[in-house]
Lab assay of single mutants.
Amino acid sequence: MSRVPSPPPPAEMSSGPVAESWCYTQIKVVKFSYMWTINNFSFCREEMGEVIKSSTFSSGANDKLKWCLRVNPKGLDEESKDYLSLYLLLVSCPKSEVRAKFKFSILNAKGEETKAMESQRAYRFVQGKDWGFKKFIRRDFLLDEANGLLPDDKLTLFCEVSVVQDSVNISGQNTMNMVKVPECRLADELGGLWENSRFTDCCLCVAGQEFQAHKAILAARSPVFSAMFEHEMEESKKNRVEINDVEPEVFKEMMCFIYTGKAPNLDKMADDLLAAADKYALERLKVMCEDALCSNLSVENAAEILILADLHSADQLKTQAVDFINYHASDVLETSGWKSMVVSHPHLVAEAYRSLASAQCPFLGPPRKRLKQS
């Protein structure tokens, strides 16, 4: 649940008159999402009104509101027999009622949201009550392989729920002597030191190019640089560091992050930047690179990204790559990247197969709970 924001200063709310007192009302909304995959969808019983329910879910471990999704594969009634019906059901509720908006969509073979439908307002739910769409999607369109909505005969539904909580009022009075504290510009100011090479005390040599930097900042941000300058190493004695395995453009992006906490060109060089972040123990930059690479996972590059993640101990990226390969196994196994990995990294192939087997055979063990970014 997000923290209630402070109200904007009255002088910034309007260029008009300023009242002596004010009130700011925040209506709290808890948002969460749920993904439900139905394997072997074409084998569902086709009687009209037949119901399939998901397991229950909530916004978190401490949330007492429990929900589930309900599907009628062949419609709810005679009117909707040519459609799939989809509903959000409130299973248990400690209150007399709650209000919530919802959005349903289908994830296609690429994991993209399609055929989205959402409620136009927050509906009133009581325990045992459901709301949804009797005519969510035509069955003939859903079952047509050309539309790519049932890869490997799996129907994957994605649901986003927004639950309306209580409202909170914050009130106060205006004073004539309003003090406005300026925003912190530390990142910009440190970035200026790097860009202008002011007050530098060490030189970093990268592929024949020299960059002036500040030992204190490098040591504070990177345990690797800290070790170089702290001990009686040649880098500490000469205040000069030779860097041979990072390209200059990648190095500059890494230094921008060290000084400012930002990497504006990360998406263009996420793979190389991940390697640099791993070498210099820049954990936050490493996770930022993992996130960017996750966003660009595809059938063509899944094997290469899995190898990269394994090489640099990028655990979150590795998990996402394995899950992606499992979901698109029939396509990924035909790529040149996968065939190369079979020869060069057989242990990763074995890991992917083990994960695929456990996903398809849940009876082999208890269900695993899916539970950071600093």
Rank of each mutant, 00 (worst) to 15 (best):
V4W: 12
P5C: 06
P7M: 06
P7G: 12
P10I: 11
A11Y: 01
E12W: 06
P17A: 10
P17S: 08
V18K: 10
W22A: 05
C23V: 07
Y24M: 14
T25W: 12
K28F: 12
V29Q: 05
W36R: 01
N40K: 02
N40Y: 01
F43A: 12
E46D: 04
V51T: 02
K53T: 09
K53W: 02
K53Q: 09
K53D: 09
S54T: 02
S55V: 11
F57M: 08
S58M: 14
D63W: 01
K64V: 09
R70N: 13
V71G: 14
N72D: 08
L76N: 15
L76C: 15
E78P: 07
E78S: 13
E78Q: 13
E79H: 06
D82R: 10
L84Q: 01
Y87D: 00
L88P: 01
L89V: 08
L90I: 13
S92A: 10
P94W: 14
K95V: 06
A100Q: 01
K103S: 15
I106S: 02
N108L: 15
K115Q: 01
A116S: 12
M117I: 05
E118T: 11
Y123A: 13
F125H: 06
F125W: 02
V126S: 15
Q127V: 09
G128A: 15
G128M: 15
K129L: 10
F133I: 03
K135Q: 13
K135E: 07
F136I: 07
I137M: 07
R138S: 07
R139Y: 07
D140H: 10
L143R: 10
E145I: 09
N147S: 07
G148F: 00
L149N: 09
L150W: 11
L155A: 11
L157N: 00
E160H: 13
S162D: 07
Q165P: 13
D166T: 10
S167Y: 12
V168K: 12
V168Y: 06
N169I: 02
G172D: 08
N174A: 01
N174D: 02
M176S: 03
M178T: 02
C184S: 06
A187E: 05
L190T: 08
G191T: 11
L193Q: 04
N196E: 15
N196L: 01
S197R: 14
R198W: 13
R198E: 14
F199C: 15
C202D: 11
C202Y: 09
C205S: 12
A207D: 14
A207P: 10
G208E: 14
F211C: 12
Q212H: 14
K215G: 07
A216N: 11
I217W: 02
I217H: 06
A219M: 15
A220N: 15
R221P: 15
R221G: 13
R221L: 15
R221A: 13
S222C: 14
P223N: 15
S226R: 14
A227C: 12
A227Y: 15
M228F: 14
F229S: 14
K238T: 02
I243M: 02
E249R: 04
E253Q: 09
M254A: 10
M254T: 01
M254K: 00
M255V: 02
Y259R: 00
A263D: 05
N265G: 04
N265I: 01
D267C: 02
K268I: 10
M269K: 04
A270D: 06
A270K: 02
D272Y: 06
L274F: 09
D278K: 09
A281I: 09
V287G: 04
E290S: 02
D291C: 09
A302S: 03
E304K: 06
I305A: 09
I305P: 00
L306I: 06
L308E: 06
A309P: 00
L311T: 06
H312C: 02
S313K: 09
A314N: 06
A314K: 11
D315E: 05
K318Q: 07
Q320C: 04
A321L: 07
A321S: 06
V322H: 12
F324R: 00
I325T: 11
H328P: 00
D331L: 10
L333S: 06
L333I: 06
E334F: 09
E334M: 05
G337C: 08
G337S: 11
K339D: 15
S340T: 09
S340E: 02
H345A: 08
R354Y: 07
L356Y: 02
A359M: 10
P362A: 13
P362M: 08
P367C: 15
R368S: 15
L371A: 13
Q373F: 13
